[in-house]
């Protein structure tokens, strides 16, 4: 078990390092480095020498592997560089914005699991063919809706027509509801799709037949026997879904004018603030790696058969 843990941790570190390297290559080697964009407005006023001086001071004239080594060294000490728009350190800005987004994505994940799980369970439980068809077609619809459009429809109806919840901002729990619902729709659809499939598989297993033969009720068979086994495949989806929800917040926080990582990212892309974009890419990779790690460690606990194999 300990060797397994060490190996998994090492793998996680390698993925993070690779994400750093890939984003470094994409963001810093493609044409148009951040500094020339930052100085773009100054081209007329600053002399060639001044520009060169700033470039030199920022290490942009060093060979690329030296720049990379510097950046990697800094990143290891928690220094992700400074934002080209604000001049503030990237790591600090991200940490400051994180709680708002974590709150939003956390609520969205809970809604997605409850809603998506509910739809999948109802679809596999019902004996009405028509109802089952309708429920099973919901995920495909949920996945096809553009998030920005769903958000704006909710604003239109709930905020403006009914006057119920705020259309924008970060104030109070009321402001979380609509953006969280918007984020939860595609995530919940994914959960429902996977869970419905694995529930159908689980219900065809011999142990279900055994339980039925022993006289267990339908509710008991579905919840105690099938769901417990069927939720394991759905759990492996957690890393992908949480990464997607985090990134969808770029769109949703823009629609609802909320402060957070998403708005930060949108503004960073808009200003071609590459250091900030790289920071967000690393954050997303970190979230993915952490959730995947937690799921991997939980798996043997939930399914003893896997535990013995490790």
């Amino acid at each position: 078990m300990r060797r397994y843990l060490v190996r998994r941790l090492l793998q996680a570190v390698v993925v993070l390092w690779a994400a750093f390297t890939v984003s470094f290559i994409v963001l810093f080697l493609l044409p148009g480095d951040s500094l020339s964009i930052k100085l773009g407005g100054l081209e007329g006023t600053a002399t060639r020498e001044q520009i060169d001086a700033v470039r030199g001071a920022n290490g942009l004239d060093d060979p690329i592997h030296v720049q990379y080594a510097h950046a990697l060294g800094d990143a290891l000490t928690g220094d992700l560089g400074t934002s080209a728009q604000t001049g503030a350190p990237v790591a600090g800005t991200i940490v400051d914005a994180l709680p708002q987004t974590l709150q939003l994505t956390g609520v969205a994940m809970v809604l997605a699991v409850l809603g998506g799980g509910g739809v999948a369970l109802a679809a596999t439980f019902t004996r009405l063919r028509a109802l089952r068809q309708v429920l099973l077609s919901l995920p495909a619809i949920g996945i096809s809706m553009p998030g920005f459009w769903v958000g704006l429809l909710l604003v239109q109806v709930v905020s403006f027509q009914w006057g119920l919840l705020p259309a924008m901002g970060n104030e109070g729990w009321e402001s979380v509801v609509l953006p969280a619902l918007t984020l939860a729709l595609p995530a919940g659809a994914m959960v429902a799709q996977v869970l419905a499939k694995s529930m159908t598989t689980a219900l065809a297993e011999p142990y279900v037949e055994t339980a039925r033969a022993k006289g267990a009720g339908r509710v008991r068979i579905h919840l105690r026997h099938a769901l417990r086994n069927a939720s394991l495949p759905a759990l492996t989806l957690a890393a992908v879904v949480s990464g997607n929800v985090l990134v969808e917040s770029v769109v949703v926080e823009t629609v609802f004018s909320r402060a957070g990582i998403g708005r930060l990212t949108a503004a960073a892309v808009d200003n071609q603030d590459v250091a900030m974009v790289q920071g967000v890419v690393l954050l997303a990779a970190l979230v993915f790696v952490l959730v995947a790690l937690v799921v991997d460690l939980l798996y043997p606990v939930l399914d003893p058969r896997v535990g013995r194999a490790v």
Partner: peptide, 24 residues
């Protein structure tokens, strides 16, 4: 395949946002 592994750890929308900020 290692590059593919890493790319799959970054959500696609974010990857395209990063590329857009590099490409214009």
């Amino acid at each position: 395949m290692r590059v593919v592994d890493v790319l799959q750890a970054i959500p696609r929308l974010l990857l395209s946002l990063a590329l857009v900020s590099a490409l214009g």
